[in-house]
Design a protein around this nucleic acid. Sequence first.
DNA 1: CGTTTATGGTAATGGTCGTTACCAGTCAAG
DNA 2: CTTGACTGGTAACGACCATTACCATAAACG
Lengths: 207, 207
Amino acid sequence: MAAARTTRRNGRRDALLQAAAEVFFEQGYAATSIDAIIERAGGSKRNIYNEFGNKEGLFSAIVRESADNLLSPLVIEEIEGHDLRATLTAFGRHSMDAYMSPTLIGIYRIAVTEANRFPDLVKSFYEQGPGRTAVRLAEVLEAARERGEIQADDCLRLAGHFVGMTRDNLHLQVVLGLRPPPSDEEAREAVASAVEIFLNGVRRSRK
Amino acid sequence: MAAARTTRRNGRRDALLQAAAEVFFEQGYAATSIDAIIERAGGSKRNIYNEFGNKEGLFSAIVRESADNLLSPLVIEEIEGHDLRATLTAFGRHSMDAYMSPTLIGIYRIAVTEANRFPDLVKSFYEQGPGRTAVRLAEVLEAARERGEIQADDCLRLAGHFVGMTRDNLHLQVVLGLRPPPSDEEAREAVASAVEIFLNGVRRSRK
DNA sequence: CGTTTATGGTAATGGTCGTTACCAGTCAAG
DNA sequence: CTTGACTGGTAACGACCATTACCATAAACG
């Protein structure tokens, strides 16, 4: 079958992608050399150039596939059928887990740095990740508003406030390498605190 | 006097620093060449090596001095003598202005990328900037708690929530180059909204 | 004025890196 | 078995770059 060759080829491709992702996320785009990737993945540089064309092609493939794998599960959550507090808590925990995962920290770092070099990639990263999360959360808030549970005039802005509150300085410190990702315990506390403030803040009068 | 030489030298030094900052913030550390800096600043590479030793020295000087200039005014604000809403609003506006300024966006970008290469620099950036801001705000909240205006158990965490709320997805979008910094109008709205939620959220029961 | 010191410009040195070429081995397909 | 594609390894080519050297000029100081 052709499947055998295809399978082997895909295995190689995945190994290359994974090794390259590690090095890129660790060192940044400019500081990463093809040799360093091959050193980690084994094989020869020809593999990379046959499969991805050049360094940019390899990098684009990484960002696209990693973002897909990591960000998709962020959105398809069970959000209906619970009250707002439970929904927000679940939302906060999931996004906290995602944002703090080493891979997403890596992608975040590189997206920030290479914003000028790869504007399209960065745009799609944002839209599939933080952007989509905020839009989804805004829908939840909108529904709550229609049920009269909260008062709000701009649900998308509110959603932004909420995710900002959960990201917090914690995310910044982790991104800067100043502290390790929070334990489950810490994450739960931080989310609980954010949910509490947000719920109270939103239930009352909007000036 | 020696002042003449010193003055001239300092002028040269500042010109180099400014040009280098522009290029570094635009392109990142690894992708910035000494030639590119000289092209923008004029003169010769000897200037840089005489003044800063090497590329790392130049970069360190930039981060140190830019951070100092930009972050110091963030802390010494008139915060007493007003009620909490006014204080928070002032705080939010000032930190929003600072975080969204092109220079600080540049520093932020490069701090995120070069966290591995320059851990000490990144640490001092955080402590002098976001860290100190949060600590200062926590003191304000602590005072408000003692006056009985708010209920809280961990003021530093609350401070983090507040700055996170003002930073928000807005900051992320600007850092990623997906939108320009907000106008004064937008900034004011965002801060007002965050203050409102935060105040209401914090005034009521902490479960 | 004479000496030191910084400056501008250009080129050399040594190294790294992206990319391509070459060669020898492997393995699936007809 | 033979063909053709893919692989591993090493080396080559060009380009770029950090750093140093060299030289000629101009400013600053005694």
